[in-house]
């Protein structure tokens, strides 16, 4: 039943939000702390466990996969309701922050990858 997958997703989502709220309260904040991230971790764990005991059918998985696939359109809808008029007044901030962070990250990618041991190549061929 496809609803099982969607219900599993919903339960993980709600649990994550509740745990995030509890964590927030424990840290002395009125806000949710990492609820979405906790929900994602819960879903990964649930998926692994259900797979191991063989209780997750392909149809049930479809109930989650649909929502995973719909996330770009949801983000598009989210973009449509942002206060862009106000954002454009701060224009250069977004541009400079984006360019700056990409440059810094590219430098680190280059630095880390130059440290990669050369014997990594034959390993790939055997895979």
């Amino acid at each position: 039943m496809i609803i099982y997958g969607t219900a599993l997703l919903a339960v993980c989502h709600l649990l994550g939000i509740v745990l995030g709220d509890l964590l927030g309260a424990a840290l002395g904040m009125k806000t949710n702390v990492g609820g979405v991230g906790i929900a994602m971790l819960l879903l990964i764990v649930m998926r692994l466990n259900l797979h191991r005991i063989g209780r997750l059918s392909a149809t049930s998985e479809g109930g989650v996969n649909y929502w995973g696939a719909i996330y770009i359109p949801v983000v598009v809808a989210m973009a449509m309701q942002q206060n862009v008029v106000a954002a454009l007044r701060g224009g250069p901030v977004a541009l400079i922050a984006a360019v700056g962070s990409v440059l810094v990250c590219a430098l680190f990618v280059s630095f880390i990858n130059r440290m990669e041991p050369p014997h990594a190549e034959p390993e790939n061929k055997s895979e």
Binding site: L9, A10, C12, H13, G16, I17, G35, V36, A39, M40, L41, L43, I44, R47, E61, V64, N65, Y66, W67, G68, I70, Y71, P73, V74, V75, V76, A77, M78, A79, M80, Q81, Q82, N83, V84
Partner: peptide
């Protein structure tokens, strides 16, 4: 609220609102 403030497109507010957005993001963990 951008496009969602126009009555004709108010549904965009629900689709791109916090609830569905977080729901979809959690689903990608799969």
């Amino acid at each position: 609220k951008g496009l969602a403030d126009l009555a004709l497109f108010s549904g965009v507010g629900l689709m791109g609102g916090n609830m569905l957005r977080d729901f979809a993001i959690v689903a990608t963990a799969f």
